[in-house]
Simulated scan of single mutants.
Amino acid sequence: MSRSPGSRRPTDPLKAAEAAFKSATTKPVEGPPKTSSIPGVKETVTLRIDQDVLEHFQQDGRGWQDRINAALRKAVGK
């Protein structure tokens, strides 16, 4: 029994790779955003950022977390 050259693989490798990438990088559908019960409440989180980025925001002293927050707000368009 002979096989045709394309019969060893059931799918095109490029299409399979693109589908795998899309499924791994597609943001899952989420429900409505959570609203805080108190406006302006900040949440404590752990965030890993590059050392040089951290140094950039810390170079002006106190308030570096507020500066990072402002930069992130600007990045998301708020």
Rank of each mutant, 00 (worst) to 15 (best):
D52H: 14
R48G: 05
D60R: 12
R3W: 08
Q51E: 13
L14F: 12
A16Q: 15
N69Q: 13
D12T: 06
R73A: 05
P10F: 03
R73W: 04
A16N: 14
G63N: 07
P39K: 04
R73V: 05
H56V: 00
F21W: 11
G63L: 08
A75I: 08
E18V: 13
S4V: 00
D12R: 06
K78P: 06
P10A: 10
S2W: 12
R67V: 01
V29R: 09
G77M: 00
Q65Y: 11
T26Y: 07
S2N: 11
Q51V: 03
I68T: 06
A24N: 05
Q51F: 03
D12P: 07
A20G: 07
K15E: 15
K27N: 13
Q59V: 09
L14T: 05
T35K: 14
G6F: 00
V41K: 13
D52P: 15
P5Y: 01
H56I: 06
V41A: 12
S7L: 02
P10L: 08
V41T: 10
W64G: 00
R9I: 01
N69T: 07
P5A: 01
T46C: 00
R73Y: 08
R8D: 02
T11F: 14
T26D: 09
K15I: 12
R9D: 06
F21N: 04
P28M: 06
G40M: 04
D50P: 04
R73H: 09
W64M: 03
F21P: 02
G40A: 06
Q65A: 12
G77L: 01
T25Y: 08
P28A: 06
T11Q: 15
E18P: 13
A75D: 13
S36V: 04
T11M: 14
L72W: 00
P33W: 02
V41I: 04
D50K: 09
R73K: 11
P39D: 15
S23H: 08
Q59K: 13
T35N: 12
R62A: 13
R9S: 07
D50V: 03
T25C: 10
R67A: 04
N69C: 04
P13V: 07
S4L: 00
P13N: 09
V76L: 03
A70Y: 12
A24K: 11
T26H: 07
G40F: 01
F21D: 04
A70W: 06
S7E: 13
A17M: 05
Q65V: 11
S7H: 04
K74P: 02
P13D: 14
R62L: 13
Q51P: 15
D50M: 05
T25G: 02
I38E: 02
D66W: 08
V41W: 07
V29Q: 13
S36Q: 10
V45I: 14
K27V: 10
K74S: 03
D66H: 10
P39I: 05
R73G: 07
A17K: 11
Q58W: 05
L54G: 04
G31E: 11
E18Y: 01
V41M: 09
D52S: 15
T26P: 08
T46K: 07
R67N: 01
